[in-house]
Each structure stands twice: as C-alpha cells, then as structure tokens.
C-alpha cells in the first residue's frame, strides 16, 4: 500500500527526516514511537501533504502512485487521513456540516454512491455514537470549545466517516484519560479491515495495549533506528530511549 524509500525532508532549511524506509501493507498497523523532536509529526505531515515541508530526496509510493506529486486535498480524496496532534478550531462551521462537505468530496472522488441527506445523517450519527459523541456536538462549531479529549474523538469520528485506506494518527492518545483513550482505541479497532492500514504515532506504550500493532518502529534523528513487533514497545516502556540512542550513535 505504502512504500517509503530513503525519504529526506526539511523545513525552513532544517533537515528533519534523514532517510526513512518503511513498507506498509494493507491490513497492517504500524506504531511509530521515539523521543520528542525525532521527526514523527514531520513524517505524518509529509505523508499528508502539508505545505512548507520540502522533500529533498527519496520517494513515497501509495497504491502505485507517486504520493509526493499530489496536493493535500488530492491525497485526502485518495484515502489518506491524518488525525492531527493539534486539531484546529473552526468557528462558524458546524461539525455536522463539515462532515457532510468532506464525505461528499471524498465519496464523489472515489466514485462511491452518494448518500442522501437522510442516509448521511444516519451514518454520521452512527459513527458519532461509536466514539461516544453526543448529537449536540454535531451542531456545534467544529472543535470550538471542545476539550482535548473531545477534539481527539472528533478526529476519530472524521476518520470513521471518511473511511480512509491509510490513516496516520499523530499522538491521538496524548492528553487523554484512560476512558477517552479506550474510546479512541475502540474506534480504531472497529475500523481495522483487511484493505486498510494505520500508522499510529505515540509516546506511550499504554495505547498499544488497546490497539495491538503488527510492527513497532523507533524514529530518532529523522531515521527509523529500530523496528520490531509489539514487544519492542514494552521494552521501550521499561527501559526508555537511551539504549536506542546509544545504539544509533554506535552505528553512526
């Protein structure tokens, strides 16, 4: 589904990604961990197509296409979804209205059957229920005045209604209490299918108790310095990152 080869990227002339290699197949969940400032969010932004990040080397192939040649909205319509670490508040746009706009845009592009107004509302409400969001949130302005946990659940709701092929969750768990974390994890688990894939960026192993990853990678200094299965996350939890940093330095 996604093949990242030797990806180098910089922002404002500052090198942040220094040769990422990653292969993601349909049906897989990849966790990306690592110390702050390692480049995890940058990788998420580069995959989603945020302007300002310059790819200086390498390639990203998504569903056989050159991903880097597509704009952010084209990627979204092609099935890429980024759950933001810091979702934006948009006053004046109700959550329901926003969801309708995006669902239409994505479905139309993917040549899926358009939903009637009635089907649309039913679909949105069903998904809202899954992330335990009350209906009155839907009529409120997007994210405006939402608590941190509500914003994150709203991200999962958007993911649920857009049915992406590849979802990148950037620290969706940070700042959540255990109940909210379970809701988010449960949302992801319900959406896991054979034909989609997830990249779950997280600081904490505890999320991975609920979303069981197929692979765990450590991103440090803009490179994936270690990969393993879910046990790697447990080891990181126990021993911290220092041993990884030392190993990485030894290689250089």
């Amino acid at each position: 589904m996604l093949t990242i080869k030797n990806l180098h990227a910089e922002i404002e002339g500052k090198k942040i990604l220094n040769g990422i290699n990653l292969q993601i197949n349909a049906g897989e969940v990849h966790a990306i961990m690592g110390p702050n400032g390692g480049g995890k969010s940058t990788l998420a932004h580069v995959l989603a197509g945020r302007e300002g990040y310059e790819v200086t080397e390498g390639s990203v192939t998504y569903m056989g296409k050159d991903l880097l040649g597509l704009s952010v909205d084209e990627r979204a319509r092609e099935g890429i979804f980024q759950a933001f670490q810091y979702p934006i508040e948009i006053p004046g746009v109700s959550t329901a209205n926003f969801l309708k706009h995006t669902i239409n845009a994505v479905r139309k592009h993917q040549q899926k059957k358009e939903l009637s107004a009635k089907e649309m509302i039913a679909f949105i409400k069903k998904m809202a229920k899954m992330v335990e969001m009350e209906d009155d949130f839907l009529s409120r302005s997007l994210n405006q005045g939402f608590s941190g946990g509500e914003k994150k659940r709203n991200e999962i709701l958007q993911m649920a209604v857009l049915e992406p092929k590849l979802a990148v969750l950037d620290e969706t768990d940070s700042g959540l209490d255990i109940d909210a974390l379970k809701i988010v994890a449960n949302g992801v688990n319900q959406l896991r299918r054979k034909d989609n894939a997830f990249i779950v960026i997280t600081h904490y192993q505890r999320l991975l108790d609920y979303i069981i990853p197929d692979f765990v990678h450590v991103l440090y200094n803009g490179q994936i310095v270690k990969s393993g299965d879910k046990n790697l996350a447990l080891k990181l939890e126990e021993k911290g990152y220092d041993w990884i940093k030392e190993e990485a330095l030894a290689i250089i």
């Binding site: 704009s71 909205d73 979204a76 934006i88 948009i90 995006t102 845009a105 994505v106 592009h109």
Partner: peptide
Amino acid sequence: ALYYMRSRGLSKKEAISVL
C-alpha cells in the same frame, strides 16, 4: 483552518468558500 479542511478532502476552492 484552510489546511485542516483540505486535509479532509475539500479542494482549496471549496475550503475557501466554506470559510
């Protein structure tokens, strides 16, 4: 806000209009 909307599949034109 514009970027956020585009990241959900709205074209720049649509996103501008919604905003």
